[in-house]
Write a protein that binds this DNA or RNA. Structure first.
Lengths: 246, 246
DNA sequence: CGTACTCTTGACCATATTCAAGAGACGTGG
DNA sequence: CCACGTCTCTTGAATATGGTCAAGAGTACG
């Protein structure tokens, strides 16, 4: 459902979070002038579809989701997760049609931007281009760590990495406050992210459970020891630098 | 080895290749003003090192190479291949240190740019930012297809995909003219790209060989039937749009 | 109170890894 | 020019890792 802007950029709740870089006057003016409205999506809603076109770019304001690609026979690979403040649509500045799909995990609100007028802007507005390039570079780094994970980490390491990663991002972006990942994230999602079957994902989680690193409850996956998880995953954690917010 | 500029951008041999977008006056002026010299590297040379800093950005002018990440115990994942015209270094606009390493496959020449002055530029120069964002978006798309491949394609499909991909890119960028990948690409490289062991990569190549899709010779891997390879890989091929050249 | 999900487990099978050994090409130094 | 070491490719055998199938339990929802 598309609505008028209810959250004006000046009062964007994400700005209070120190994980995000403070708005420059310039960037605030840009964002404000570009925001076209809000997209309010229900749980599990399909926001963008592989093969379809989209005239919009989005920033996720509330909730979370994921991007994925599919093969014709239904095999699915989750490429990345979308957290509050994440900017999506860049990935297809080029093609007419999307190369991946996007779905929400739980209800979500996106800020809507217009793809065409965006392009015109970084011709003139100074710092904006740099911020967008920064975001693209960060996105690429995350994808590359993920690639290393699927290609070279064992199932156990991979699962540990993913859970630690999701917790860290969730906390940094204010999506979650405790140590629990929302129950909307199922083992099927983990499996499709890790390149494993659900059954094997479940058995791997059991090992993590036996070592008391995680607990899978009906309210979601509780991460009992993120530090050990990161160590088992051979992962050094997220970079701390604040993200630009667009 | 770093040398003075021997190939001025006005006479850049890559410009003759229709796979690259024609230089706008603006972009040519920019590139010309930014080029600081050339880096001439031997075969298998380490150009950038994970964990180290680099004050430079590069465009590959001649030859080819690859980017990779490593785990402490030596496991290695090749993230992507670098072909003529590819622009590297963007991936770390942010961090002080590189998050991946780069090596050449055979002798190579890179154009050198200065990271700091680059940043200043897209504040002022109009179209440049757009071109850089375009390149970043394309790079991300390729990584995502690769992620789908490792996560969800079978070893056979994956190998078919990679070989077809390398051939297509090699031909488009003028690196290769026939149907043969240079012999500097070993089965170990393929294995490290595909997330497989060398032994299994070899056995998978045997299947492709038995179906007469490829032939592995001392002069390199000959791709006998790229179309069938793409079909077996369930891959639709490279997008045709010309790449900006920086 | 049934139906649809998700999670869980066991048994069996497929896929991929490791180990080991040998063949062929290449380069180096005697 | 040949002997030797190194590197890559190749193959087989034993083993480990992960997938598929099947069935049941718990929960959520209408």
């Amino acid at each position: 459902m598309i609505t008028e802007t209810r959250v004006p950029c000046q009062q964007c709740p994400l700005r209070k979070n120190p994980s995000f870089a403070p708005f420059s006057k310039e960037l605030l003016a840009f964002t404000l002038s570009q925001k076209r409205g809000e997209l309010r999506a229900g749980s599990g809603a399909s926001v963008l579809q592989e093969g379809a076109g989209s005239p919009h770019l989005y920033t996720l304001l509330e909730g979370w989701g994921y991007r994925y690609k599919s093969l014709a026979d239904g095999r699915r690979q989750i490429l990345s997760y979308i957290f509050p403040g994440d900017f999506i649509g860049l990935q297809s500045t080029l093609a007419e049609t999307m190369e991946h799909s996007v779905r929400t995990l739980g209800p979500a609100v996106f800020c809507i931007f217009d793809r065409k007028s965006f392009r015109a802007i970084y011709r003139s507005a100074g710092d904006v281009a740099h911020q967008i390039i920064w975001l693209a570079a960060r996105e690429e780094q995350v994808l590359e760590e993920h690639l290393l994970s699927i290609g070279r980490r064992t199932a156990y390491e991979r699962t540990a990495y993913l859970l630690a990663f999701l917790l860290d991002r969730g906390k940094a972006t204010g999506l979650i406050s405790g140590d629990r990942l929302p129950a909307s994230l199922t083992q099927q999602h983990l499996a499709d992210t890790l390149g494993l079957s659900v059954v094997h994902t479940n058995k791997t989680l059991r090992k993590l459970r036996e070592r008391r690193l995680v607990a899978w409850t009906t309210e979601g996956c509780r991460i009992s020891d993120a530090a050990v998880l990161r160590r088992e995953a051979k992962w050094k954690g997220l970079p701390g630098a604040p993200r630009p917010l667009i």
